[in-house]
Design a protein around this nucleic acid. Structure first.
Length: 265
DNA sequence: CCTATAGCCTGACGGC
DNA sequence: TGCCGTCAGGCTATAG
């Protein structure tokens, strides 16, 4: 699940429950998710510290620790957080667990092990190193910034939107939503877009992501115009009612409306 | 430099 | 019931 809106909700969740509490004990249950060091080293870096604040860039969540380092969490396709009195009923697939006073704990779970845990010096440095694109909810994400990001891209608009080095945070699901909102065909070419279309795309990116966050990424709260609750073969377009097409782009299953998404420029 | 593809990992689901 | 193939919203390494 975790794309930008999902990670934003994870961030709010972590902020609400796990900040400013002493980490009595840290347990890395699966060191294979730990990047740039051993599980033991990560545990030692966390124990005795507090999570002071969080930041998000795209699909990455960063939590600052006493002493200056940051814990980076990436959720892959199945990552999640769970906080509570986890003493006896720890969630399945817990890969990292932070124990706080009074038996409360935060569990980072991930069924498929495609996520990442890492200690980094600071989020900006990580973003630079990885050459991640701008986060579309950052202040700096202007129409000009979008135009720059799309410049020189030769692939489809759909795969370009999902490229984390172009824009950080959009994945398979939300790229479909954004393209429907804009009326663009997923195989449109980024460099063919007219200025007016570019402006509409810019607006749609922000609107879709914000609306998903407002809905707290719960499908039953999404705006009616979203495809998301209906991602299956033969589903109806939430706008015009015609049958959605399912195609593969860059190996990902995409849904689009052949009627409402005819625009390629 | 760019893009498309296979593969990583586990679990759910449908068909036989 | 059990087995098998397919697929899933992530990203990376590799090939073209």
């Amino acid at each position: 699940m975790p794309e930008l809106p999902d990670v934003e909700i994870q961030k709010q969740y972590l902020d609400a429950c796990a900040l400013h509490k002493k980490i009595r004990q840290a347990d890395v249950r699966d060191p294979s998710l730990v990047k740039g060091g051993s599980g033991r080293a990560l545990e030692r870096a966390l124990e005795g510290k507090r999570l002071r604040s969080t930041r998000r860039h795209g699909k990455h969540l960063f939590a600052s620790l006493d002493g200056g380092a940051w814990l980076r969490l990436h959720f892959g396709m199945t990552g999640d957080l769970a906080y509570g009195k986890l003493r006896d009923d720890e969630p399945e697939h817990t890969r990292l667990r932070l124990d706080f006073p009074n038996e409360y704990a935060l569990a980072y779970t991930n069924m498929r092990k495609l996520g990442e845990l890492e200690l980094v010096e600071d989020p900006d440095g990580y973003v630079d190193e990885q050459k991640l694109g701008i986060d579309p909810l950052d202040r700096g994400f202007t129409i000009a910034a979008l135009r720059d990001a799309l410049r020189g891209r030769q692939g489809t608009i759909k795969s370009t939107l999902m490229n984390q080095q172009v824009l950080a945070g959009i994945g398979n699901v939300y790229s479909d939503e954004i393209l429907l909102e804009t009326g663009l065909h997923p195989k449109a070419r980024p460099h063919h877009l007219r200025d007016e279309t570019l402006e509409e795309l810019h607006h749609a990116i922000k609107k879709v992501l914000r609306d998903a966050i407002k809905a707290r990424v719960q499908p039953d709260r999404f705006p009616r115009r979203f495809i998301l609750p209906h991602r299956e073969e033969g589903a109806a377009c939430p706008r015009c009612g015609r049958t959605l097409r399912q195609i593969t782009i860059s190996g990902r299953t995409s849904y689009f409306c052949p009627h409402d998404q005819r625009r390629k420029t």
